[in-house]
Amino acid sequence: MARGSIIHIAMHLGFCLFGMSMVYLSQNFEQTGSITPVFIGFCIIALTLVSLLSVVLNSAKTFQMKSTGGSIWRSLAFIILVTLWITLLPYLGFIFSGCLFFTLISFAVPTDKNKVTKQFMAVSVGGYITTFAFWVVLTKLLHIPLPEATVSLLNNANF
């Protein structure tokens, strides 16, 4: 069986498990509070079983994953970078982390065939300006607070 099919089946089992744990955890609730989650849980279990059945019955055709035709590693790199960004956000503050990760993420983007690496400079500077502009417009003009740094040196106002 292809690797895709195995993950596909595993995913169904994951959903099924999700439904079951939902039903299980709902036991502690009051009656009015448990009807809906129990119903939803059972529906998920039933639907995944039906879907699984159709997967198994059609196993002659190997399952085709949706494909973007791109590099999955770049996608994963992006996810990791964004996760890091979000984790560090409360420590580094909006402006500093914004500038830092704008540059890092732009490095992870593959270059267009006809564009040159030189652009990274411009893109980074553009990124700093954008980050700063967002900060000025949102916090100064519209009074929408953005994340502040716990490291006071990196406080947004210091930039």
């Binding site: 992006f78 964004v82 914004g98 704008f102 732009s106 893109v123 553009g126 990124g127 954008t130 980050t131």
Partner: peptide
């Protein structure tokens, strides 16, 4: 350029 757009989207999502 895409190298600007993608971090920009990430920033806006945040």
């Amino acid at each position: 350029p895409k190298s600007y757009l993608i971090p920009m989207i990430a920033l806006m999502l945040l």
